[in-house]
């Protein structure tokens, strides 16, 4: 299990190589990473991600533990960046390792849903006209419903 909240970029290939560390029980690894996309007006200059230091680690660990238990995972990885991110930059990644693909897929989705609306990060979009805080969407909240 590895959780990292960091300013710097990460290497997906390297992370996955380390992640798949030869445990012969693992038959399926799913990974997802999110990247900074342009806004609908195509005016994004960069993004600033604010976090609640301490609570981010705690909250993510909590959800990772829930996922490991629920889907009998052999390993799980969450990396989430904060600070200034440019268009196309990697924001975060999640990887899960299970015996079968269904558990790996589902647990990765579960972690994504919880990271989106339960881990204390706030995205700010900066454009040449100023900035705005990204609003949470109802869809993100209702996405949690299916895991209850």
């Amino acid at each position: 299990m590895r959780i990292s909240v960091q300013l710097k970029d990460f290497d997906i290939g390297k992370e996955l190589k380390l992640f798949n560390n030869g445990d012969t029980n693992i038959g399926a690894v799913v990974s997802f990473h999110g990247i900074v996309r342009n806004n609908s007006e195509k005016s994004l200059m960069h993004m600033d991600i604010e976090q609640y230091p301490g609570m981010t680690q705690k909250a993510i660990s909590n959800y990772v533990e829930m996922a490991v238990e629920r889907w009998s995972l052999y390993d799980a990885l969450v990396i989430h960046r904060h600070g200034k991110l440019l268009l196309g930059d990697r924001i975060m990644m999640v990887a899960t390792a299970a015996r079968h693909r269904r558990d790996a897929f589902q647990s990765a989705e579960f972690l994504m849903d919880y990271l989106k609306s339960r881990a204390p990060f706030w995205k700010k979009e900066v454009t040449k006209d100023g900035y705005q805080w990204v609003k949470s969407v109802l869809d993100d909240e209702s996405a949690l419903e299916r895991w209850r």
Binding site: K116, A119, W122, K123, K135
Partner: peptide
């Protein structure tokens, strides 16, 4: 105690 808007991570 902390007050903040709904989170927008991920």
């Amino acid at each position: 105690i902390a007050f903040f808007p709904p989170m927008t991570g991920g």
